[in-house]
Simulated assay, not measured.
Amino acid sequence: MPVYTVHAPSPGGDDLRATDQFVFVRDGFHFWAMIFGPLWLLWNRLWLALIGWLIFVAAFNAGLSSLGVGRSSLFLANIVVALLMGLEASSLRRWTLSRGKWRQLDVVIADKEDAAEHRFFERWSQKQNGIVNDQWAIDRGGPPPTRNTPGQPFSNPPPLPAGGIIGLFPEPGGSR
């Protein structure tokens, strides 16, 4: 099943009530990005990625030509670059969104984008309860939470049973 990441505009712009601006980015291989790399970048408005791709391909081809690589090898090398473009297209799109101060809200697994939207908004609307701040956004840059942080639901482990033993035998040396 495909994995989608959900992105929302920055808090300085519209608030989270503008759900029509949420973007769902499918992770995985993009066939059209491999076949029509620069056109796919233009279509998705990835301007810096397009400029970087053009500079890279020009320098790559010039470097291989200056090394005296034959045309068939140059063609195969360009196929590898196109394959890498298809593999990294969704990462380029997420990178562009993060540069534009968009934040990642969630990760959703679904067959199609419509199902991912439905699953995300069903789960997201239950969490929001009328709140329009950014308390459920995922912060990928911070350290993982620890058990010693007060106020987090997993800070305190669940209490042990009365006998203190967990398992099939409730007391030491008891009958089976």
Rank of each mutant, 00 (worst) to 15 (best):
F29K: 10
S125P: 01
Q128A: 14
R71A: 15
L16E: 07
I55W: 14
P150A: 07
W32E: 13
R147H: 09
A89L: 04
Q104V: 11
A49M: 10
N61P: 02
Q104G: 03
N78C: 02
T96G: 10
P170V: 03
V6H: 02
P11Y: 00
T5M: 12
I138L: 12
V107C: 09
A18V: 11
G63Q: 00
G13F: 00
V57E: 07
L74K: 14
L168K: 11
R71T: 09
L42W: 11
R94E: 14
A49V: 03
W136S: 09
D111L: 09
G151L: 03
I35V: 15
S125V: 04
A77C: 06
G163A: 13
L41E: 02
I166K: 06
P161S: 00
A82M: 05
D15N: 15
V6T: 01
R119Y: 04
D114S: 14
I131K: 13
I131T: 10
S91P: 03
G68A: 00
V23W: 03
V132F: 13
W53M: 06
S125A: 06
L41S: 00
T146E: 07
S73K: 11
K112A: 06
D134W: 15
V6S: 01
P159I: 02
P157L: 01
R176F: 12
L97W: 00
I138V: 12
P11C: 02
Q104E: 07
H7V: 06
Q21D: 12
A162R: 12
Q152W: 08
L105R: 04
G68S: 02
E171W: 07
E122Q: 07
L46K: 08
I165N: 08
G86E: 02
A62N: 09
G12Q: 13
L160V: 02
G141C: 05
R147M: 10
F22L: 10
P143L: 10
H30K: 03
A110V: 01
L50K: 01
G12M: 12
E88N: 14
E122T: 15
R123S: 15
A8R: 09
I51A: 13
A62W: 09
F169A: 08
V23F: 04
P150N: 04
M1V: 12
R45G: 04
D20P: 08
R147Y: 08
W47G: 01
A137R: 15
H118M: 10
I166D: 04
L41I: 00
L48R: 15
Q135T: 08
L67F: 15
W40T: 01
S98H: 11
F22T: 07
L39R: 10
F169Y: 11
P153V: 02
N78Q: 00
M34Q: 09
G141A: 13
V69E: 04
F24E: 00
R103H: 12
P145Q: 07
P153C: 02
I165H: 13
A58D: 08
P143W: 05
W47M: 03
F120N: 05
A82K: 06
P153Y: 02
P143Q: 09
V108K: 02
G174E: 07
V81H: 00
K127E: 11
G163S: 15
A59N: 11
R94K: 14
F31H: 09
D106V: 02
L46C: 08
L64C: 08
F120D: 03
A115I: 05
Q126W: 13
E113D: 05
L168Y: 06
L92H: 13
E117R: 15
I166S: 03
F56V: 04
L87E: 05
F169K: 11
F56I: 02
G151Y: 00
L41R: 01
